[in-house]
C-alpha cells in the first residue's frame, strides 16, 4: 500500500474510525454491560425467600410498568447498541490473527477469549431472545408470558418452562451466562486501558483482580438464577394452588 493512498484513505475515514471504536467500547459498558448486570440480578430474584417466583414476578412487572414505552426503550436501549457493538465486534475480530499457539501469554489468551466469548454471547442472545419472545412453537419459541389466566408468577413459570424445555437448554444457558460475564469482566479491564485510566502494569494488575472478582460474583449470580429456574416448581414451598398464588399477589 502506497503512503499517499493510505493517507488519502485515512483522511476520509479518520474521524469516524476513532468515534466508532470509542462507541464500541462505550456501548459494551453502558447500555449492554449495565443491562447484563441488572438482568442477571433480576433473574436471581427467583431465589428470593417467600412464595416461589413472586419476587421475580414483581421485578418483571416493575420493568413492564413502562407499558407501551417498553418496546421502544428496549430497542433503543438494548437491541440497537447490541447490534452496533456486535457488527463492529465482528469487524474487529476479522482484523485480528490469533497466535496463542506460539505466544501463550495470559494476556494473549484473554484477548482470544474476549473474541470467542463475544461470538458465543451473540449466538446465545439470538437463541435466548427468540426462545422467550418470538414465535416458533416447535422448539418452544416465544414462550415467555407475564400473565396467564390463573394469575400467579406466570413470568417465573414460563421462564422455568423455557429452561426446562429440554435437557440441553440449561447447559446452553450456563455457557451463555459464563461467556457473557467473562466478556463483560474482561471488557471492563480492557476498557480501563482503552480510555487510559489504568496505565502502569501495577494499576492494570490491581484492576485485573477487581474485574476477576466482579466476574466470579456475577457468574455466581447468573448461575444461581439459572439453578433457581431449573429447580423451580410452582407447587413447591408455601404456595400450593393458583388461588393462593393470586392471593399472594394481592396481599
Amino acid at each position: 500500500m502506497s503512503e499517499e493512498h493510505s493517507q488519502a484513505q485515512a483522511a476520509a475515514t479518520d474521524g469516524y474510525h476513532f468515534l466508532i471504536h470509542r462507541l464500541h467500547s462505550l456501548t459494551g459498558l453502558i447500555p449492554i454491560g449495565v443491562f447484563l448486570m441488572m438482568h442477571l440480578f433480576t433473574n436471581a430474584s427467583v431465589l428470593a425467600p417467600g412464595p416461589a417466583g413472586m419476587e421475580y414476578q414483581k421485578s418483571v412487572e416493575r420493568i413492564h410498568a413502562l407499558g407501551p414505552l417498553l418496546v421502544p426503550v428496549e430497542i433503543v436501549g438494548i437491541f440497537l447498541p447490541l447490534l452496533f457493538h456486535s457488527i463492529i465486534g465482528f469487524m474487529i475480530i476479522y482484523t485480528g490473527k490469533s497466535n496463542t499457539q506460539h505466544y501463550r501469554y495470559g494476556g494473549n489468551i484473554r484477548y482470544s477469549f474476549q473474541r470467542w466469548t463475544g461470538v458465543i454471547a451473540f449466538f446465545f442472545i439470538m437463541y435466548h431472545v427468540w426462545q422467550l419472545h418470538w414465535v416458533g412453537q416447535p422448539f418452544r419459541g416465544g414462550s415467555f408470558r407475564l400473565y396467564n389466566e390463573s394469575g400467579g408468577p406466570a413470568a417465573a413459570v414460563t421462564t422455568a418452562e423455557a429452561i426446562k424445555a429440554a435437557w440441553w437448554v440449561a447447559p446452553v444457558y450456563a455457557v451463555g451466562i459464563l461467556a457473557s460475564v467473562y466478556h463483560l469482566s474482561n471488557g471492563i479491564w480492557t476498557s480501563l486501558i482503552t480510555w487510559g485510566i489504568t496505565i502502569r502494569p501495577r494499576s492494570q494488575q490491581m484492576a485485573g483482580y477487581v474485574c476477576a472478582g466482579f466476574g466470579v460474583i456475577l457468574s455466581l449470580i447468573g448461575l444461581g438464577a439459572l439453578r433457581g429456574f431449573k429447580t423451580f416448581e410452582v407447587g413447591s414451598g408455601a404456595v400450593q394452588t393458583a388461588e393462593s398464588l393470586q392471593e399472594a399477589t394481592h396481599h
Partner: peptide, 25 residues
C-alpha cells in the same frame, strides 16, 4: 486515525516480546 490506537486489542504480547523491555502497554 485509521490504523491508530483503536486498532490495538490489548493482548499485551508486544510488551512481553520486546527485547528492550520497553513499557509499550
Amino acid at each position: 486515525g485509521q490504523g491508530g490506537i483503536v486498532d490495538c486489542g490489548n493482548s499485551q504480547n508486544c510488551v512481553k516480546v520486546c527485547p528492550k523491555d520497553i513499557p509499550l502497554t
